[in-house]
């Protein structure tokens, strides 16, 4: 496998062929914000937070699905990119009902962390306050659509890692929502194995362990990565 050398934010970086810009940057210690990306599952390129500028390309490209190329020049931080990221996060916060003060994921929420990182102390867009419900029919887990950002991590882990294929997306546009099987109550799902991987994958408080209260929903995502690495790369020894 040939290695590629490229420049990320002016820094010379080398990366194996077939590496994404996101991984190459991470290896070089350059962090690009993401929301839909999750180690271990294929990328959707949906949240648009990891968009980067690539010299010679007019379009912004998602770092998570763009492969490194020889001589590529990538910019991950610019005023324009920061402005777009901030606006995208604001759009998310206004879209559903994200109330940190009463959220199980308060303090452990990726949306919250990114918002604070981007200096979002208020949202300029009108809050939509849509009426979404909570599915609390599963004995162990709950799904609060109000906190869902439709990153589809849960769908992808359910299909790709667990192979159950319970979770899916129904509807379209702002009316899209996560469903179980053919839009049945989660508790009635016959395909769900109750493995909990979707709960581990969720970046916000949308999926949670039942019984957890404000701020209690901490997740250990290394478990997902561990399963995939053990299965696909035959690597099961994790260095501390």
């Amino acid at each position: 496998m040939a290695a590629k050398t490229l420049k990320i934010d002016g820094r010379q970086v080398s990366a194996a062929e077939d590496t994404t810009v996101l991984d190459a940057a991470a290896e070089a210690g350059i962090r690009i914000p993401t929301l839909c990306h999750l180690e271990g599952v294929y990328d959707a390129g949906a949240c648009r937070l990891c968009l980067v500028e690539v010299a010679g390309t007019a379009k912004l490209l998602p770092a998570c699905t763009t492969l490194v190329a020889e001589g590529m020049e990538v910019v991950t931080q610019s005023d324009r990119l920061r402005r777009y990221r901030r606006m995208t996060l604001e759009l998310l916060l206004a879209e559903r009902n994200h109330v940190c003060a009463v959220c199980v994921a308060n303090g452990h929420c990726e949306l919250q962390s990114l918002a604070s990182e981007h200096g979002i102390d208020h949202v300029r867009y009108d809050y939509r306050f849509p009426r979404w419900g909570v599915d609390a029919t599963h004995p162990r887990f709950g799904l609060d659509h109000n906190r869902c950002i439709l990153c589809t991590r849960c769908v992808r882990v359910c299909w790709h890692i667990e192979g159950a294929g319970t979770k899916n997306v129904a509807g379209r546009g702002a009316k899209s929502f996560i469903i179980d099987d053919l839009n049945q109550p989660w508790g009635d799902s016959e395909s769900c194995t109750s493995c909990g991987k979707c709960v581990l994958a969720c970046p916000t408080g949308a999926l949670f362990d039942r019984g957890s209260t404000v701020g209690e929903m901490e997740r250990d995502r290394t478990k997902l990565e561990f399963i995939v690495n053990a299965r696909e790369k035959k690597q099961w020894i994790v260095s501390e």
């Binding site: 648009r48 998310l92 879209e95 950002i149 439709l150 379209r172 546009g173 702002a174």
Partner: peptide, 14 residues
């Protein structure tokens, strides 16, 4: 909008 990416899904609404 299919609802997959945020700018199109939430941006067109705003």
């Amino acid at each position: 909008s299919c609802g997959k990416c945020i700018p199109c899904r939430a941006g067109t609404v705003q």
